[in-house]
Write a protein that binds this DNA or RNA. Structure first.
Lengths: 139, 139
DNA sequence: TCCTACAATGGACAATGTCTAAGTCAAGGA
DNA sequence: TCCTTGACTTAGACATTGTCCATTGTAGGA
């Protein structure tokens, strides 16, 4: 169980009530909240926190590399606190549920050099799509 | 060179001037326009076309499975007319340029069954990120 | 304790996408 | 060819998501 708050403290990040609350809301496994959901939950703990602060704080955590932005659906970006361990995502097309998964092998090796168009590739994102057990049962 | 317009006609899609223009704008290889760019180019050919129609038409082409929605950057969705042939995307993190690529092998085999959480997986999206030759030279 | 640089606030603004009511038109039938 | 009908298009209001900025507040060091 990674502790996002501890990791941020360890980087000498200036701590404020607002930042602590955002980090607490975002902490955990299989957590993929939108900025708006983070704001809603943060407001429950600290009513006067503003939307701009939530956006700023999320943006800073992304810049620090402690949180990853995920764009699995067409709507809002989601924020994933498990930046410390590489992983990919599994998404249910119906309910939108997201799970972290760890495929075997390195997807980079699947791309031949004549398909790289001279690019310097630094990262690969893989999104598996389908139906979760619940939605599959209903369909 | 696939002809999007021909494929749509072949499906008995009711043809209108607006739909024809949108299909013409979107046709080609390595084409990944945003809805707004499609609207801008369509307006050049047919000035009175409305934004709603562009969105509707793109949405219908996606429903028909003739066009794919791509969410490579955090901003607008992009539309890719090469739905008839499976492929993945290579994105430049600086200039946002997108290329279609064809990795070898099946990325699905990389996901062990105990990492599938009971999901029925129907599709895998792979996005390679890095710098294009131009941006790498400047950096 | 006091200072100062950094953080938070809130409200306007921007970008993207959705919806609705009313008008228009493509395509098939007489 | 002309009519009919249901599907398509339009314009603009509205919704959602995200950004910016000037002002106010505060964490942490001297």
């Amino acid at each position: 169980m990674s502790d996002l708050l501890e990791r941020l403290r360890g980087r000498g990040w200036r701590m404020t009530a607002q930042r602590r609350v955002v980090a607490e809301v975002l902490n955990g496994d299989h957590v993929h909240l939108t900025a708006d959901e983070v704001h809603a939950r943060a407001t429950a703990k600290l009513p006067e926190i503003s939307r701009a602060t939530v956006y700023n704080t999320l943006g800073e955590m992304v810049s620090l590399g402690e949180v990853i932005e995920v764009a699995t659906d067409k709507r809002a970006k989601r924020y994933d606190p498990n930046a410390h361990r590489p992983h990919q995502h599994l998404v249910c097309d119906l309910c939108g549920q997201i799970r972290d998964v760890h495929p075997t092998g390195n997807p980079l090796t699947a791309l031949p050099s004549d398909e790289r168009f001279g690019f310097t590739i630094s990262d690969v994102e893989v999104t598996y799509r389908g139906l979760c057990p619940n939605c599959a049962a209903k369909a």
